[in-house]
């Protein structure tokens, strides 16, 4: 019941991932009904050299517009935004991104914790945080922040993740609302209110 209310109010879905998460997303995107009513933000650990091709790669799998974020870009519902390599992604306010090139956090830039915490602060209970496959502990603190701010927390079912450490770590240390396979995750997102 409470969960359904939360879903109705959801404005932003932020997905974080590391090793093994690109494949998971490539599976997810074609299953998403278009258009979407929320903002979808993707933050992945990756090598600098892969660069903007990640947004291009995702764009081949969905009709939803996909863009790599530049400094102070506006945040619009109905779009997918990909965090650029080598910057932390912050939410300046409900309508604007900001980038930050400060020290790595959890050996990572972008750090999932940094973006999740920023999303939690700005969107509070209107946020859904999702953590995918990966080999480190980044993201757990961020999910704790989203939960604390009244948002919803989800992780990829570790038994279906290429690298289960990250979702598993979150399950152990944070309060997780849903543990889903990528198929179930698509079904869940498709049940969010349509525009």
């Amino acid at each position: 019941m409470a969960k359904n209310k939360l879903m109705d109010a959801s404005e932003v879905v932020v997905i974080g991932g590391s090793a093994g998460s690109i494949d998971a997303l490539m599976k997810l995107f074609p299953l998403l009904k278009t258009p979407i009513s929320y903002t979808l933000i993707i933050v992945l650990h990756r090598k600098n050299s892969v660069d903007s091709s990640l947004a291009d790669l995702f764009a081949m799998k969905t009709q939803i517009p996909v863009a790599e974020i530049e400094d102070k870009d506006s945040i619009q519902r109905g779009a997918i935004y990909v965090a650029p390599a080598d910057y932390h992604l912050l939410i300046e306010n409900e309508t604007m991104f900001a980038l930050d090139a400060s020290e790595k956090v959890n050996y990572s830039r972008p750090s999932l914790d940094v973006t999740f915490e920023s999303v939690a602060e700005v969107y509070g209970s209107k946020a859904i945080g999702i953590l995918l496959s990966g080999a480190n502990a980044d993201g757990t603190q961020g999910l704790i922040a989203i939960k604390k701010a009244g948002g919803l927390t989800i992780v990829q079912d570790p038994s279906t993740a290429q690298t289960p450490f990250m979702p598993h770590h979150a399950i152990q240390h944070a309060s997780i609302d849903l543990i889903l396979t990528m198929n179930e995750m698509a079904m869940f997102l498709n049940r969010l209110p349509q525009p």
Partner: peptide, 9 residues
């Protein structure tokens, strides 16, 4: 200055 970053700092 951008507030989100200042706050973190």
């Amino acid at each position: 200055y951008s507030r989100a970053s200042l706050k973190r700092r």
